[in-house]
Nucleic acid binder design. Structure first.
Length: 130
DNA sequence: CGTGTGACCGGCG
DNA sequence: ACGCCGGCCACAC
């Protein structure tokens, strides 16, 4: 491992994806996001958790930052925060772009928040399996 | 190679 | 109940 005196080293113990880390965290994130079915949503934390870095959900958001113009297309609009709020709507060019995309998938959005978020929530662990 | 930052999350006052 | 603050990972400068 890396030198440093970090005792909290990434023990690939319960991190099924940490092995694929060699490729690029971004691609991993995109890979998961692309598998989100239409009309479903998930959260940054859920993705981060699935990737083995649940404490760093921020990074997932950062990965989304580079999701623009990436192909295959990454449905970043299906990723919201744990409250179901469209925290990243400001990054979709238009202030209402993200909401429009969601509505197009029959997802109701009220006050920048996904209605029935818990019901529409797509859990990578549950859907993709551990 | 050091520092800053980010579309978050969870704990604590 | 609300707001602040620390943390963790990867990337840009």
């Amino acid at each position: 491992m890396i030198g440093k005196k970090n005792k909290k080293i990434n023990t690939t113990k319960e991190s099924p994806r940490s092995i694929m880390r060699q490729y690029s965290f971004f691609e991993d994130v995109y890979s998961v996001v692309r598998q989100i079915p239409k009309g479903r949503v998930t959260s940054y934390g859920a993705i981060a958790n699935y990737l083995g870095t649940k404490l760093s959900a921020r990074m997932v958001g950062w990965a989304m930052n580079g999701a623009h113009g990436v192909s295959p297309k990454v449905p970043a609009h299906r990723v919201v925060n744990r409250n179901g709020m469209l925290s990243g709507k400001a990054h979709f060019g238009s202030p209402t772009r993200m909401e429009e995309l969601l509505k197009k998938e029959k997802i109701t959005v009220e006050n920048d928040t996904v209605v029935d978020f818990e019901k529409l929530f797509w859990d990578p662990f549950k859907e993709l399996g551990l």
